[in-house]
């Protein structure tokens, strides 16, 4: 076996330079080298830190304002005391934006967790069993997808009445069919692959093939969708709040509602639309950038 020996020496030589590891580790290493991913992760980190540390970071109370400086024609803009100026009720705009991150993060995380879990469960059932289970679940998902996402969310939220919980439920429900379809499609693709055939020829049980091989290999697109769906959830939450379907308490700061409140004063205080808008933009951008980089890192076909 001299050929084999020389080949194994080659193998060892090949690997002294670079450390080995699973594809996930490989993907992570690639992400760290990708500036897009780093910027995305930094934005997300900033967003999460601001949300968690809001009471420490906010210079003023987000709910109590001083109306003495506010007139119909004049809302004070940025100053050294109030970096982003005051809002229409004389509250510090910066503090409200900082606290607003909390609602966005909460809605995003909770609705995504709920929606993705339920969606993946249904998708895994459909993709794992196939046959009539698949048909019933997927037709149901098709029906849900037939209604435009935001419209569907509005309907659900309106049905449940304005509260944070109904916003979360509405966005979660909208996400269910997206994740179900994605996981099912990904599983169907993997089921036809050679290694599944190999496992079958080895006599591995069906259930073990699905859970041990097909499912783990189908998760990459779902992870990517997860980061992108978080971005969408933040936008949807802002949209619902903009339409008055957010928290029942109008003094709770939400970026979407802050936009609604200023829409009639755009001429006198354009900065009040700009700042919450920028906050939404940056947080969504962070998730989108990371999601795109993640997709590149996890898809071997896009790897350089």
């Amino acid at each position: 076996m001299s050929v084999a020996e020389s080949e194994s020496v080659l193998l060892l030589a090949e690997h002294t330079g670079e450390e080995g590891g699973s594809r996930l580790k490989l993907a992570f290493r690639q992400l760290r080298r990708n500036p897009v991913a780093v910027i995305g992760a930094a934005l997300i980190l900033l967003f999460v830190a601001v949300a968690i540390l809001a009471p420490l970071l906010a210079p003023y109370s987000p709910t109590h304002g001083d109306l003495s400086n506010i007139t119909v024609s004049h809302v004070p803009g940025p100053s050294s005391k109030h970096w982003l100026g005051l809002d229409l009720q004389g509250r510090d705009e910066l503090s409200r934006i900082i606290y607003g991150a909390r609602a966005s993060l909460l809605i995003g995380v909770v609705s995504l967790t709920l929606g993705a879990t339920l969606g993946m469960l249904l998708g895994a059932l459909a993709g794992g069993f196939g046959g009539w289970v698949d048909s019933i679940i997927m037709r149901l998902m098709d029906i849900m997808l037939a209604v435009p996402g935001l419209l569907f969310a509005i309907a659900v939220a309106a049905l449940l009445g304005p509260s944070l919980r109904s916003v979360m439920t509405a966005i979660a429900v909208v996400n269910v069919p997206v994740f179900a379809r994605l996981l099912r499609a990904s599983m169907l693709g993997q089921r036809e692959s050679d290694y599944v055939l190999a496992a079958r020829s080895l006599g591995v049980k069906r259930r073990k093939i699905i859970i041990g091989h097909v499912l783990p290999n189908s998760l990459a697109p779902v992870i990517v969708q997860g980061t992108l769906a978080l971005a969408t959830a933040i936008i949807d939450a802002a949209g619902l709040a903009f339409l008055g379907l957010g928290s029942a308490d109008p003094s709770v700061p939400e970026w979407g509602r802050m936009l609604t409140d200023t829409q009639q004063y755009l001429r006198t205080a354009p900065q009040l639309a700009l700042f919450p808008g920028a906050a939404i933009l940056l947080s969504v951008l962070g998730f989108n950038l990371l999601g795109d980089a993640l997709r590149e890192a996890l898809d071997p076909k896009l790897r350089r």
């Binding site: 699973s22 050679d194 290694y195 496992a199 080895l202």
Partner: peptide, 30 residues
């Protein structure tokens, strides 16, 4: 157990998430 298969494309016939040891141990456990 008594009839096995070797595939054309060695990469696609191996689960990318399994290390070699677990690829070889799986049939024994099964």
């Amino acid at each position: 157990r008594r009839m096995q298969m070797v595939f054309q494309d060695p990469l696609s016939s191996l689960d990318p998430r399994q290390d070699v040891e677990s690829i070889l141990v799986e049939p024994l456990r099964t």
